[in-house]
Design a protein around this nucleic acid. Structure first.
Lengths: 196, 196
DNA sequence: TGCAAATTTAACATTTTAGTTAAACAAAAA
DNA sequence: TTTTTGTTTAACTAAAATGTTAAATTTGCA
């Protein structure tokens, strides 16, 4: 029963995402992807026409996902502090599943000379930035350019997971010990940002 | 006058580092590197025997550099707070010059299945971690696993520079506006970590 | 200067990766 | 069942990337 979306096309895409975003093998070939998906390499061309098309699809969907994830959290009706805690929860879960998603995107942007970025529409984070600024007026957050607040937040969430292979080696951590640490970070990040 | 270290071999290595670490073009070919260095591609093989060798050399030297940078800062005789501010200064300058150095290393580790990491000797950060712990006892820092403190520090320093292409697009920042922000971060990070 | 060593190059060979095609196969419809 | 449509595969071609060689060139020094 063909043409279902839970079909080979989907499988290939999912596999590509796993290799790129989860395993962080940014140089993976079509062969690598086909093998991992358990299909012939030509199937890949059948569904995506070319490697570049597949990469592009994966890239656009990642950008889409990021955009939506941001929007859904930022437009949540919860009060600010709660909203940030939701964001931490959502993003941390996502970083565990796909630690190299953003790295993949940046690498693509760097190699393709930012032509890609023209096509990208990003929903306004402005209302959220304004909300952050109001919190700073209230004194809940230290006064700074609200962009810093967001950068701090994403940095604290993302970087340790990207650097996991290095950190585990560096600090002599087992995988479980590392996971334990990552779990601790949920409250830790919230506390750090809100200084309480 | 051959065998000088300021020679072609050095040039090739520097160029490779620029492409990988500065420009973040992680898929660059030997041709790309040779072209950028203004030498014949075979020169690359003359000095490094193979692409893998060149990559390996670059990787090892990056690891070495990171190790030394860490050691030099951690073993500084300054008092703790000063020491951290030195670290921020040093690492931020380095991240501006080579934002994708760590990304490159992690990507290598991910593709080569962590065989590389066996060969890596890392000088003990333990004494430094102990020092961090003492500061927590003193109350200068919030109590937590000192590894968190280091992760926070490196995250806040590194991640915004890695994500620069995305952030500039996202927040509609010009290059100069972004640089301005990065400059502000020196004091900002210090304040955030020390809660003052 | 002229020799010897190191360096650089051009031309070629090999390997890897990407892309194409036509035929085999499977499933649904006639 | 046969036809039709969509899917998958094996075999092949093309292009790109890596690796090799031997000759030309440069450089330091006897």
């Amino acid at each position: 029963m063909p043409t279902k979306d839970t079909s080979t096309e989907q499988l290939i895409k999912e596999t590509a995402k796993r290799i790129f975003f989860t395993e962080g093998r940014l140089h993976a070939t079509t062969q690598d992807i086909a093998d991992a998906a358990g299909v012939n390499r030509a199937a890949l061309h059948y569904y995506f026409r070319s490697r570049d098309q597949l990469i592009d699809t994966v890239f656009q969907e990642a950008m889409q996902a990021l955009s939506q994830r941001l929007a859904s959290v930022m437009e949540s009706p919860s009060p600010f502090r709660k909203k940030i805690e939701e964001l931490i929860e959502v993003f941390l879960a996502d970083m565990v599943a796909y630690p190299y998603q953003e790295t993949f995107m940046v690498t693509q942007l760097n190699t393709l000379g930012h032509q890609l970025i023209e096509r990208i529409h990003i929903n306004p984070t402005n209302s959220f930035l304004a909300e952050v600024e109001r919190e700073m007026e209230k004194g809940t957050l230290e006064k700074m350019n609200p962009i810093h607040f967001l950068m701090n937040l994403f940095s604290l969430l993302s970087y340790p997971l990207i650097m996991a292979p290095l950190y585990c080696q560096f600090f002599g951590l087992s995988e479980t010990a590392f996971k334990q640490l990552m779990d601790e970070r949920k409250e830790l990040i919230s506390r750090l940002l809100f200084k309480d």
